[in-house]
Amino acid sequence: MTSRKPIKKAVFPVAGLGTRFLPATKAIPKELLPIVDRPLIQYAVDEAREAGIEQMIFVTGRGKTAIVEHFDVAYELETTMSERGKSLDILEPTRFTPGEIITVRQQVPMGLGHAIWCARAIVGDEPFAIFLPDELMIGKKGGTGCMKQMVEAYNEVGGNLISVLEVPREDVSSYGVIDPGAANGNLTEVRGLVEKPPVAEAPSNKIISGRYILQPEVMRTLENQEKGAGGEIQLTDAMARMIGNQPFHAVTFDGRRYDCGSKLGFVEATLALAMERDDMGEEVKAMARRLLG
C-alpha cells in the first residue's frame, strides 16, 4: 500500500442562513438544531473524530458564533453542575483543546465551492475532508461512520473520494449523481458528475451524499472557478474538472442518510434516532402508535 498523507483536517461549511427553518433559525444556527439532544453539528464532528480527524475548520458567517461556543468550555455551567454533584461526561464530546477548532468567515454567500475555498490557507497542501452537517449520516448499529469508511478507502486508493447512496431511479432528478466506471466492493470509479439529471438521462442511481475527501489541488481549481448553477461557485463543477487528472472514486456508504436540511427529513431523523435509544426508544414507539391511532 502506497504511503499517503493522512486525512487530519475537515472543513464544515456552516455559513448558511437556514431560511427553510425560519423562524426557529432567526437567532439559532440551523447546525445547532437538535436531533433529540445532540445538535446536527455535533453528529458531524463526532463522525470526524471517529475517522481520526484532528482539526475542525468551520467556515462561518454572521450570527454563527454560537457554533464555536458550543465547542468551548462553559465555566459557569460546568461549575454549577459540579457543585450539584452532576457528571460532566455528557459535555466531553463538546470539549476541544486549543488549535483543534479554527474558524474562517465567508463574508458573501457565493456557494459551496466558495465556502470551501475560504479555508484554503488552513488546508494548505494537505488532503482534507468536507462535511455537510445537514446530511446526517448514521452507520449501522455497531458499524463505522461514513467518514471512517471513506478514510479506509482513501488509504487504499488515494486521490479524491465522495460518498454516495443508491436511491430509486425515479428520485435521481433531485440529486447530483455519478457516472460510474469500474466497481470493486463499495468502491466505484467516478467518470463524471451530473447535477439533477432527467430520470431517462441519469447515468446511475448513485447520489452524492454530503461527505468528501479531496486533494488540495481543488483549491487552485476553485480559485479560477466561474459561477455555475444559481450564480454561485459550485464545488461539483470544480470536482468534475479534476476527474481524469487524479484518481476519483465513490464510496457507497453502508448506513443511513437523513436530509436534515428539509423539515420532513429533520422530523424523520429525530423520530428514527429516538426510537433506537435505550433510554426512550420503547416509550417513543408507544407514543407513535398512540398518535397513529
Rank of each mutant, 00 (worst) to 15 (best):
P29M: 03
E226H: 03
G52N: 15
E78C: 15
R105W: 11
L187I: 03
M275V: 00
D72Q: 10
E283M: 14
V199M: 10
Y43C: 03
R211V: 13
I243Y: 12
P23W: 07
P93S: 13
Y43M: 07
L136W: 05
M219F: 12
Y43H: 15
E276Q: 13
A115H: 04
D89C: 01
V199S: 04
D237R: 03
P197T: 02
G192R: 05
E189L: 13
A15N: 10
L193R: 00
R211E: 10
P216H: 15
P109K: 10
I90C: 13
E69A: 14
Q55A: 13
L88D: 03
K64M: 13
F12C: 01
Q234N: 06
G159S: 09
E232R: 09
A240L: 13
M275L: 00
G52Y: 15
G145N: 08
A153P: 02
I57F: 15
P127C: 10
C260P: 11
I101A: 11
T80N: 14
V123A: 10
E78T: 08
R220A: 11
V157S: 00
V172H: 10
S174F: 12
A115P: 09
T188W: 03
E76R: 14
A10Y: 05
T65M: 14
L136Y: 09
L291A: 06
D125F: 12
V59M: 11
I178D: 11
G139T: 04
N224L: 12
V73Q: 04
D89N: 08
E283W: 13
V157N: 00
F128R: 02
S204P: 03
M110H: 08
E126H: 07
G185A: 06
N155Y: 01
T252Q: 11
L291R: 09
K9D: 04
E50T: 07
R84S: 11
T188S: 14
K5D: 11
A15R: 08
F71M: 04
G16V: 00
R191L: 13
G228Q: 02
D278S: 12
I53E: 05
A182Q: 04
R191G: 11
G281E: 15
R105K: 09
S82K: 14
M147W: 01
K141T: 04
V36F: 04
E217T: 02
G281C: 15
Y175C: 05
A44F: 01
V199F: 08
D254I: 02
K140W: 01
N186Y: 06
R95G: 06
G231R: 00
L291Q: 08
G293L: 14
I41N: 05
E283I: 10
N186P: 10
D134G: 09
D278E: 15
L214Y: 07
N205I: 00
K148V: 02
F58V: 10
R62D: 13
G244P: 14
S163I: 01
L40V: 01
K30D: 05
G61W: 05
E226W: 02
L136M: 05
